[in-house]
């Protein structure tokens, strides 16, 4: 895209935001690989639009391209909140193709890791440029205090983006929501199971309140 068109686009985006209250906010779904971001994005999209966003997998880095679902209308207490959902690739600081070779051929594993690295870079780019709010998804069965989580939350905070922390996988025995709430006391933590659909009412209440 030429510089001029890009400029024009960004000006029109800015004026859109200024003049139309209806312009849906772009909510990025972020978090480490395998946290359940796509499972959540699919559940939200299915609940309110009828179709899904992307594929879910127990193998990390299933999502390697950011995917957007536009105009998801969420109804809460007679009010409608419209958002765009962006499902992003899980963020990490390392990718080793050998982690996938049990599940696929070496060629496929190498390709998956190459796409994964591009996906992570893309997710970081969206975070810097293109999202208005963040849902940070964590697997509540795992230790939330990792460098990636701390760094990403710091990056999100430095951009002054509204953020909700979703403690996912509460259906698992090892799940601890408290551990997450204590790790990030400065933010609202919402427990849920995206897979089982547990606690989705509170999820939508919070989305409407934070991003409406």
């Amino acid at each position: 895209m030429g510089l001029f068109t890009e400029l024009k686009d960004s000006i029109s985006r800015a004026t859109d935001r200024l003049f139309s209250e209806q312009e849906p906010k772009r909510i990025g779904i972020y978090g480490p690989p395998n946290a359940g971001k796509t499972t959540l994005a699919n559940r939200i999209a299915r609940d309110w639009t009828g179709d899904a966003i992307g594929t879910e997998s127990h193998i990390p880095h299933e999502t390697r391209r950011a995917r957007r679902k536009e105009n998801v209308e969420i109804e809460r207490n007679g009010k409608t909140v419209t958002i765009d959902i962006v499902d992003t690739p899980g963020v990490t600081t390392k990718v080793d193709y050998e982690e996938f070779t049990d599940e696929m051929s070496k060629d496929d594993a190498v390709r998956r890791s190459r796409e994964a690295t591009e996906g992570v870079a893309e997710a970081m780019h969206w975070l810097r440029e293109d999202v208005d709010g963040v849902i940070y998804v964590l697997d509540s069965a795992e230790d939330p205090i990792t460098q990636v989580n701390t760094m990403l939350i710091g990056i999100i905070e430095s951009r002054d983006l509204p953020v909700l922390i979703f403690a996912n996988k509460i259906d698992l025995d090892e799940s601890s929501v408290k551990r997450i709430a204590e790790a990030f006391p400065q933010h609202e933590t919402v427990p849920l199971s995206a897979k089982e659909g547990e606690n989705m009412d509170e999820v939508y209440d919070n989305i409407a309140e934070y991003f409406g």
């Binding site: 990718v95 992570v120 870079a121 970081m124 990056i155």
Partner: peptide, 14 residues
């Protein structure tokens, strides 16, 4: 800084 961390992740990926 958070911005530098964000770039560090991107360059590392590349």
């Amino acid at each position: 800084t958070p911005d530098e961390e964000s770039k560090l992740i991107e360059v590392t990926m590349a």
